[in-house]
């Protein structure tokens, strides 16, 4: 029984390198996303609510690595590594990106853990996206940018848009990407690849 558990939850070198590489790929995509942002940011941030629509994409590294490796800590580590690398590549938020990454990783991880790393359907990933959107709103973002001092209707609007973004741009898109990658057959050694 113990032997069995170890096989199910222990990390192989393959898992670890896989998580790291997923983190790196998304760090590069975050960087590209950031670049796109730097130009349009001043226009969309004219309203604090519209900018929340783009937030979900930052949770995607955790979603994808959680969905592919399907072991405890995979989602957290994927997001954490993506944050560390995106700091090294040069993000506007710099060092603080690590704090955001840790919180977002914990958010995704918590939902996957609640399903005991067994269910990775569109529903669970969307839930992970929504949960992460909410907790990362209050810490660190609300603290850093002083959201709590905003007018109440604005705060509510931000949260609603942010949750939708987390579900779609984070959860659903992440699941969609994972499935597209699994379809190519290179994930044969992982549970996602075997399922099909």
């Amino acid at each position: 029984m113990i032997e069995h558990k170890k096989k199910e939850y222990g990390y192989t070198t393959m898992d670890v390198v896989m998580i790291a590489v997923i983190g790196v790929v998304f760090a590069i995509l975050f960087w590209a996303y950031n670049q796109m942002f730097a130009f349009i940011f001043p226009f969309i941030s004219a309203s604090p609510i519209t900018i929340q629509a783009f937030v979900g994409f930052w949770f995607i590294a955790g979603i994808v690595s959680g969905c592919i490796v399907q072991k405890p800590g995979a989602a957290f580590l994927g997001e954490f590594i993506a944050a560390v690398i995106s700091m090294l590549l040069g993000s506007i938020w710099g060092v603080w990106v690590i704090v955001s990454g840790i919180m977002q990783g914990l958010g995704v991880e918590a939902v996957f853990a609640a399903y005991r790393y067994k269910k990775f359907t569109y529903f669970t990933v969307a839930l992970a996206g929504i949960f992460t959107a909410v907790i990362s709103f209050f810490f660190p973002e609300a603290v850093t940018e002083g959201f709590l001092a905003y007018r109440l209707p604005i705060i509510v609007g931000m949260l609603v848009v942010r949750m939708a973004s987390g579900a779609l741009l984070g959860g659903a898109l992440g699941k969609f990407i994972t499935d597209s990658v699994a379809k190519t057959g290179i994930l044969r050694n992982f549970k996602v690849g075997k399922a099909r």
């Binding site: 393959m14 390198v17 896989m18 790291a20 590489v21 997923i22 790196v24 790929v25 590069i28 995509l29 994808v64 990407i177 990658v181 190519t184 290179i186 994930l187 050694n189």
Partner: peptide, 10 residues
């Protein structure tokens, strides 16, 4: 990008 990277990772 992911597919290429995963091949390298393996």
């Amino acid at each position: 990008l992911l597919v290429g990277a995963i091949r390298k990772a393996q």
